[in-house]
Structure formats: structure tokens, C-alpha cells
Nucleic acid binder design. Structure first.
Length: 406
RNA sequence: CGGGCCGUCGUAUACCGGUAGUACGCCUGUUUUGGGUACAGGUAGACUGGGUUCGAUUCCCAGCGGCCCGACCA
């Protein structure tokens, strides 16, 4: 894409009312624009990043047999009174139509997916099944904050699985855990599976996937020698104590942001909606249900919190809005290189604007695209290629670029 | 929801109970051309509604909005 055509522009100063790094950089660089606290517009650059994260999550959910659907965000009140959520879920947005009919905005979709699945599940031979969607969620938070980290409207992948028995759920939970770790790894993040409380509708322990960052709002204790990790809200252990699981490590405390979770919902929702299947003995039985969330838009914020330097964002290659940023300095013509990269199917942002070299360099650093390519009269027919993470460029022939940055 | 701070050109800021200034942006021209080039001219602003006052952007009240701390957060 030609940068001269991009409708957004870089701001030279950071917005005064954003405290977190993710909000400051994303707003300044023109990836997002705040409509109100907790709700952002995703601009062309930001939407490209969001879609990349979404696609990585989608690929990994498909890989474990998840089937993608898209459910309404607007829910009838009845589904929520059936489960008690209308009265008990305080973050539920409720609204009334002009004819006084009442609705809820989806903040999680057990109330919709459970009756939906009931239409298609009748025998144990239909199980297990896992369906998911990637869709906007609404939560009436008392205080939206921290840029993309806590919104009242946010993009989330939510998967729901249905199983014949607890053993099959447990098996699937293990599969999902590995899928989640693959997602985070592909995003360049290290996540810890953390034991946490199950919230309002399950007494069981749930697992939250946490990325360590000071911008987060959870405190966790984790063992420095084994995988053990627990949210302080349910921890019986204390910081500095020896780990009881492995007996070798010590527990350290850290701030983290929750980028995914897994709940064993048991039979709660199946019972509420009278969802049953016929087992091998011919008896009617409730399936065991699980739900699995990943906060897509929050991940975008967390990635920026983790990957930045004083000059700007440093996107991991897997989610960068473009792979290459082609800077055409005054007196040179980058159009041939641009066309070459397009033929090679390399996503490239072509800075063809009539602005100074210094401004192009500064803004390129802020945008954080992984590879920077410079064409300049100084270089004659050669071009300069540099990684965002590195200091020194390489001078190469234009036809060699795609081989280097691919 | 409790507490605190704050709303001034597009952005970031300053001053002031009596003509609202600066930087960046934007427009025109010249200049410059490898790290936000320089100069000249121009453009553009007091959240809303009440009150006090001769006069309010400034003081007071309310509303709306924002940020921070806490609580909350399937």
C-alpha cells in the first residue's frame, strides 16, 4: 500500500490522557482511535494487526477440530434468566427496545451456544463437538482502562466444547492447553497457565493464560523451576516460599495480563437448558461442557506492551501490519522496488510521501514494521535493508531483497 | 461505585477577572534533502448550561467527558 494514500497520519506527541504504553503508541502511530473509554476504532494499520492475530487463533482452533460459527451479539433476555445470568452477572449490558422488550449484549455466549448445540446433538455418537466464534463482546466494566487491555467492547475468540463424560473433557482440555501455548508462541509471547478461581458459575479451578507485564492487572505466583503458577486471588502459598509441586524452585510474584482462559463448566448449562444426549446404554444424560476464551484485541495491546523501544513499536513478524516498509527518499524512485515486492507477494507499505528523510525514518520506527527498505540517490541502484530490531543495515541489490526478508 | 486530578486551535501546552500566547500540524512561497531542515506569511481554540460580576476562558454550582488510585472484573 502507498503510504500517501493511507488516511491516517502519525501524531508527533503522545495523547495526554492515555497512560499505558500500548495506548500511547497505538494512538500516536495511527493504529487505533479512541471513541470513548474502553472502545476503540481499529484503523487500517490496526485492523491488519487484529486480523493477523485473529487468523493465528483461527488456524490453531481449526487444527484441534474447532468449527467456526458466528452467533448474534444481541441476546434475548429469556436465555439469560434461564441460567440466572440476568440477575447475577453484573457486567452484563442490558437494554430495552422501544416496545419494552429486553435484551442483553453478549459478554460470553453459553446462553446462546448451549441451546444451539441442543438442536444438533442427540446421541453419544455426536460427541465430542467444539464450536467457536471470533466476535465482539460487551462488558459493563466499572472502569475501562489501559488502552486495549480492558475495554467495555472487545474482540474475543470463545470456544465451547461438549463431551460425553469428564474423562473426555479432561482429554480435550489437555489438547486445548497445547493449542493455546502454540497460539502464544506464534505471537511471540510466553504465557503461563495459571490456576485461578472459576468465577460465578463453577466451583472448580479454572486456568488463566497469563503473559507477564506490568501493564496487566493480575498478580500471580509462579515457580522459577517448574510449570506451577497460581493467581494470588486463590493462592495459599506466599512469595518466596519453596514450591510444593516440584520441591525445587521458589515462588516469585509478578504482574500479568490474562490473555486466555479455560473453564470446566461441568453440567451447569446443559442442565439449565435441558440439553441431553442418549448414551450407549440408551439413557439420557447431560454432556460435560467447557469454554475457552482468548482476548484478541487485548493480545494486540499486550504485544505492544512487550515489544517496544524508545522509538516506537517493534511488531513480531507474525502480526506486523506489513512485512516491509519501503522508504523512498527524495531524489530516488522506489516504485520499481515496490512492484518487485508486490510480485513476490511481500506485504509492503510504500512511503512515497514528499517528506524529509528524517521524518520517514522516525515514523518508520514508530510504526514498527519488521523490515525497512530504503531507496536513496546516495545508494544509486542498490537498496538498504534493515530489521527494526537491528542497528546496522545491509546494502543489497533490489532483486535480492525478497530472499533476505522472506 | 468511593477517592483524587483535569477539560484552552487538529495535537501538545502557557497565561490571565479586562485584545488568549507558543510549538507541532495544516495552507502559500522560498529553502533543505540520510534521523522529525530552515525562514517568511497565513489558518485555527476556551466542553455544555446556570450563577457571581460593569465584565468570566479564568471564580462558584450542575451536567457531560477524560485520566489516575481503589473496589469491581465467568
Amino acid at each position: 500500500m502507498r503510504q500517501s494514500q493511507l488516511f491516517t497520519k502519525v501524531e508527533r506527541t503522545a495523547p495526554k490522557d492515555e497512560a499505558t504504553v500500548n495506548a500511547q503508541l497505538l494512538v500516536r502511530a495511527g493504529f487505533v482511535s479512541k471513541l470513548m473509554a474502553g472502545a476503540y476504532t481499529y484503523l487500517p494499520l490496526g485492523l491488519r494487526v487484529l486480523r493477523k492475530i485473529e487468523n493465528i487463533v483461527r488456524e490453531e482452533m481449526d487444527a484441534v477440530g474447532g468449527q467456526e460459527i458466528l452467533m448474534p451479539m444481541l441476546h434475548p433476555k429469556a436465555n439469560w434468566t434461564t441460567t440466572g445470568g440476568w440477575e447475577n452477572v453484573d457486567v452484563l449490558f442490558k437494554l430495552k427496545s422501544r416496545t419494552e422488550k429486553e435484551y442483553a449484549l453478549g459478554q460470553s455466549e453459553e446462553e446462546v451456544v448451549t441451546p444451539l448445540i441442543g438442536k444438533y446433538i442427540s446421541t453419544y455418537r455426536d460427541l465430542p463437538k467444539a464450536v467457536y466464534q471470533i466476535n465482539w463482546k460487551f462488558r459493563d466494566e466499572l472502569r475501562a482502562k489501559s488502552g486495549l487491555l480492558r475495554g467495555i467492547e472487545f474482540l474475543m475468540k470463545d470456544m465451547y466444547s461438549f463431551h460425553e463424560d469428564q474423562a473426555d473433557f479432561d482429554r480435550f482440555y489437555g489438547v486445548m492447553k497445547q493449542a493455546y501455548f502454540r497460539v502464544y508462541e506464534r505471537l511471540g509471547l510466553v504465557a503461563k497457565a495459571t490456576e485461578a478461581s472459576g468465577g460465578a458459575f463453577t466451583k472448580k479451578i479454572s486456568y488463566e493464560f497469563m503473559v507477564l507485564t506490568d501493564a496487566g492487572e493480575d498478580d500471580i505466583l509462579y515457580c522459577d523451576a517448574c510449570e506451577f503458577c497460581v493467581n494470588v486471588e486463590i493462592a495459599k502459598e506466599k512469595e518466596g516460599e519453596a514450591c510444593t509441586r516440584c520441591g525445587k524452585g521458589r515462588l516469585a510474584k509478578a504482574r500479568a495480563s490474562e490473555v486466555g482462559n479455560v473453564f470446566d463448566l461441568g453440567k451447569k448449562f446443559a442442565e439449565d437448558f435441558e440439553l441431553t444426549f442418549t448414551n450407549a446404554k440408551g439413557e439420557r444424560q447431560h454432556p460435560v461442557m467447557g469454554c475457552y476464551g482468548i482476548g484478541i484485541s487485548r493480545l494486540m495491546g499486550v504485544i505492544v506492551e512487550k515489544f517496544n523501544d524508545p522509538a516506537g513499536i517493534v511488531w513480531p513478524e507474525s502480526v506486523a501490519p506489513f512485512r516491509a516498509h519501503l522508504l523512498e527518499l527524495a531524489g530516488a524512485d522506489g516504485s520499481k522496488v515496490y512492484e518487485h515486492l508486490q510480485r513476490e507477494k511481500i506485504e509492503v507499505l510504500y512511503d512515497d510521501r514528499d517528506v524529509s528523510a528524517g521524518q520517514k525514518f522516525a515514523e518508520a520506527d514508530l510504526l514498527g514494521i519488521p523490515w525497512r527498505i530504503v531507496v536513496s540517490p546516495k545508494l544509486e541502484d542498490r537498496v538498504e535493508v534493515k530489521r527494526r530490531t537491528e542497528k546496522e543495515p545491509k546494502i543489497v541489490d533490489p532483486q535480492d531483497i525478497h530472499g533476505i526478508i522472506r
